[in-house]
Amino acid sequence: MDPPTTTTSSDPPPSNLTDLTPHYTFPPFFTLQPNLTTRASQLSSWSTLIQSYARSSHLFSLSLLDALDSPLFHNKALGRRLSARDARVVVDWMASSEGGGRAEWKNRFYIFYRRPEEWAEVVEAWVERTGQKGTVLTLYELTESDAVSGEEFCGMPGELLGRCLGVLVKRGRAQVFGEGGGEGVKFLR
């Protein structure tokens, strides 16, 4: 399993990108529409496409600069690409409340095909399923160990993991202790 946190143009294009959003082959899809209703629907299509792309290539975050040359924003077969400015608009929209908070800017941008709260549920469900409630797990164990290699949250960046654990802590489902790389988390029963 390769570390999927970064994307470069060398990544193999997901074969099903066209299937994810049929608009991917529609030339005007790569021009931001001036008509507001059309634009809203276009942006939501883009959002769907980016999320599906991230999910299928197991990405948690993207660097905008790299992504511009990736098949996501550049349809080589069609000869159309989304300009940097427009891509930024798309991501901004995804990050906005209108776009459902499906992205977040942090140097690069996170793509929340699952929001932190949703991730928290996924992690908790895994802990439940593997009967590890009450035990203490390190963050490394949660994201990088062999135990989670088949899980969706495998390879999740530490910051994102921190956030979803934060959600669990708030809900009173977990307790985080330790600091500086050696943090552990205890899932409460």
Binding site: H23, F26, P27, P28, F29, F30, T31, N35
Partner: peptide
């Protein structure tokens, strides 16, 4: 809907909507 290309703006049926 429109497509901004090198050769100017082209108009298309709006498949983006709905």
């Amino acid at each position: 809907c429109r497509e901004q290309g090198l050769d100017g703006i082209r108009f298309w049926e709006n498949w983006l909507k709905g």
